[in-house]
Structure formats: C-alpha cells, structure tokens
Design a protein around this nucleic acid. Structure first.
Lengths: 126, 126
DNA sequence: TTATTTTTGCAACCTTGTTGCATTAATAGC
DNA sequence: GCTATTAATGCAACAAGGTTGCAAAAATAA
C-alpha cells in the first residue's frame, strides 16, 4: 500500500477546491494556479484526492469532468445529491440537500449516481 | 432558415440509432458503418438529428456523449427519464418509464436534466 | 436540365486526458 | 541533521473526442 505525501501542489489544489463554491475542472484549476505546477500533476493530484475520498467527481453536461469538495459526507460517502449546471455563467454547483427519489426495476444494481440539472442558477435567472 | 436534406449518411445513422436498444457514441456508430462516411460527417449528422429533435443526447459517466432515439416523446420532448450505464458491458440504456422526483429551491430554472445511474444491468447482474 | 444551396470529405487543429521515464522532493530511520 | 528510500513531479509524446475551413459532390428548387 502506497503512502500518500503532502506536497505543495496537492495542498494548493485541495485548498482551491475546498474554497470554491462551485465545482472546478482541471482546466479551471490550471488557470487559477497559473504555472505553479504542470498540467499532468493536476490530473494526478486530482486522482489522489478522489482516491482518498476528499473530493468527488461530476460529469458536466458537455462531458467535461469537474471536481468538488466532499462536504456533507463525513465518515462514509454519500454523493446522492443533485448538481446544477448553469447555462449562462457555466457554473456547476452541488445542491447538497436535494436527493432525488426514483423506483428502478429490481434487476438493476446501482453503485453510483450522476444527476445534473441544467438551466439558470439563482444569480442568472433573476 | 436552412432546409435539411435527406442524405444516405443521415438515413443510415438515423436507422442505426432507431434500431439500437442502447445509446450509441459517435465511435460506435463509426465502427458499425465501417467507412460508409467520414468521421466528421457523423458528428454533423448527429448534430442535425439532435436539432430536429429525432434523437437525444446522454453524457455517460466517463464523459463520452451517446445518442439515443426519441421514443416516448411524440409531439413535445420529455427526456425526464433515467439512463443506466452498465459498468460491465458498457451499455447505456434509456429507462423510459422511470422519472425521478425531486424538490429544488425555487430560484433555479431547469431546462434540461441528465440523470445516469451506473452499476450492473439485468444481463450482467444475474 | 440547370442553378442554388446543403452535405460531404479531407486536412488540420484544439481540448481533455493518459503514459513512460528520468529527475526532484518527502519521509523514515539513523 | 544526514542519508536511503520511495512517492511526486516535469517533460515529451501520445490517444481519443470533437471542431473548423474549404473545395468538391450531391440534393433540391425552378
């Protein structure tokens, strides 16, 4: 079992995601860090953070993957919340309180859920 | 307003998607057609079919975009159904009957929904 | 059958994401 | 604090998905 190390890049990326009210893509992180570390490093750090359960992954409506902090999930993960993707400001946010309900045919075994609504966020619809 | 034309490529792609029980990616369509038409043509035909409301778009859990026929929606579109992405056989299918329910804060204006569950499909879980 | 306009094919390009490998930097043990 | 070990980084190169410009080919309208 590999041991994970605390590095400058990891700390910076982790703090950036934790401080951000919306989910960030690799590209957005890269633009914010502005050459602090390599593009590839960001991908690898994100992979590690995911692996350690510190962030979670959201597939945006255009197929781009975004990352957000795990806030509500403490000991065990529960990412059964809705995400909202604003068509105007392009932001993707977690709606932590909102969990959908649905009834599936028995035969399906669900392990993960990805639920994204798109439209206009409160800021853009007013 | 541009008028759309009925071409061989468009017909073939449309029929392929209509006949498929699962959603198809550009890549999968390309492999099936085997050189009938160019890669770029497929993208452009898919764009047209989407525009005409004959197919709908699903973002898979890995970010790859897939396309499926519009079956349940007749006059007006309603794509408020769940999609299922099987981790084993990689298939993405529409669960037409299953519509989730959720309560969103008022301020959000929803125009589209993308809900994909992943896990094992009936074929793979038995 | 011809004129017009849409589609197509091709080449080139961009973006996102991954891999291999040598170098650099954390950490554990002394 | 110093050294050995091993993880993390940077770089180059690559792969897949997707887009754009432009000339040539096919549908349609007249």
């Amino acid at each position: 079992m590999k041991k994970t190390r605390t590095t400058k890049a990891k700390l910076e990326i982790q703090e950036l995601i934790a401080a951000s009210p919306m989910a960030l893509s690799q590209r957005e992180i890269q633009n914010t860090l502005e050459g602090t570390c390599d593009r590839v490093t960001i991908y690898r750090v994100l992979y590690r953070l995911l692996d350690e359960g510190l962030i979670h992954k959201i597939v945006n409506t255009d197929g781009v993957i975004k990352y957000a902090s795990c806030r509500s999930c403490t000991s065990k993960h529960d990412h059964d919340h809705i995400h909202f993707s604003c068509e105007k400001c392009q932001s993707v946010t977690c709606l932590e309180g909102v969990a959908p309900s649905y009834t599936l045919p028995e035969a399906y075994k669900v392990t993960e859920m990805n639920f994204t609504l798109s439209g206009l966020c409160p800021q853009c619809s007013s």
